[in-house]
Simulated assay, not measured.
Amino acid sequence: MAPQPQEDAAASFDPLRPKLVRVAYRMLGSVADAEDMVQEAFIRWMGADRQAVREPEAFLRRTVTRLCLDQLKSARRQRETYVGPWLPDPVVEEEEEEDVTLPLMLALERLSPLERAAFLLHDVFGLAFEEVATTIERDPAACRQLAARARGHVREARSRFQVDKKRGIELAEAFFAASRSGDMTALGAMLAADVSVHADGGGKRAAAGAPVFGVEAVIRLHSHLADLFRKNGSQLVRAGFINGLPGFISLEADGELQTTALDIVDGKIAAIYVVRNPDKLQHLN
């Protein structure tokens, strides 16, 4: 029996789904939104004349990218009213395999949607500018300019992670132990002088309403938090790589998960990124 159209669509689409989700997530910084965009692309794929499509992967990547460009417009409006610092949804890996680290994703937030698309498609996913041009409906010369502007903004963020992977996990585990036990001497020894803390609670869980800067302020913050950890408990679920940075997942006293990612430069923790917003952690449960 010949396959039904829906079955045929799924058979050609499903092997490409992980790649498409990677594109959408890097465009949007949201796992749920990325999955929604990819599902919308699948619905369009079911309705397309698939026999006329010579390169399904290129066709679907264009579809997903264009859907994401539209989504970014509404996402930016939502970010304007977001409570406290915004961080991308954490993606956790056992090994460091991330081609777009968390600092780079934050740098991408400062780009226009078209700059972001041109940079990701060319510099991260390796597409020729002719393909980028077809995808975002601009000419190749304009795409080169978009990618060049984006590159200038994100150059520093791309090269920040400078620590051996094993050493990165050791630092993450040592950070968890010191921050939960209240050993501020050990904690302070790990921190860069200009360290910063960025905590995303989204207004749904307690978190600092603005980033905290400087080693003294960060130690004061963690001294206060350590009292709460000792009183209420905090359990290490596992260490790993979060958006390309060493970090860990923890289970906190309210029964909710939390992720902590550490940007390490020259052997010191330069930035601490904590995601507490439960909406951004559902995919980890």
Rank of each mutant, 00 (worst) to 15 (best):
A206T: 13
A178L: 10
D227H: 14
V163S: 01
L146K: 00
L108C: 00
L87H: 02
M37Q: 10
I269W: 00
R138T: 08
D263H: 06
M184C: 09
I219T: 12
P246L: 05
Q6C: 12
A32D: 14
D194R: 12
V265C: 04
L171C: 04
S112W: 03
A107F: 00
V31Y: 02
Q71N: 10
L111I: 04
Q78S: 14
E57D: 13
L114I: 10
D8K: 08
T65L: 03
R230M: 10
L284M: 07
V31L: 03
S179G: 03
L171R: 03
N285F: 13
F241Q: 00
A217G: 09
F248Y: 15
V275E: 03
G214T: 06
D266V: 09
F129I: 05
V274S: 02
F229Y: 15
A174P: 06
A133S: 10
A172N: 06
P278Q: 03
D263S: 11
S112K: 07
Y82Q: 02
D263Y: 04
R54V: 13
I272N: 00
V53E: 02
L257I: 07
D123A: 15
G267M: 10
E216D: 15
P211L: 09
T65I: 08
D164R: 08
V197L: 12
A270G: 13
Y82I: 04
A189R: 15
E57H: 11
V21Y: 03
L171P: 01
V195C: 07
E35D: 14
D123I: 09
A208C: 10
Q258Y: 01
M46N: 08
E97Q: 11
E173L: 12
V31E: 01
R144S: 09
A128V: 12
S159I: 09
T101D: 06
F213T: 11
L60D: 00
T185C: 05
Q258P: 00
L108R: 02
Q51V: 11
I269T: 00
G203T: 06
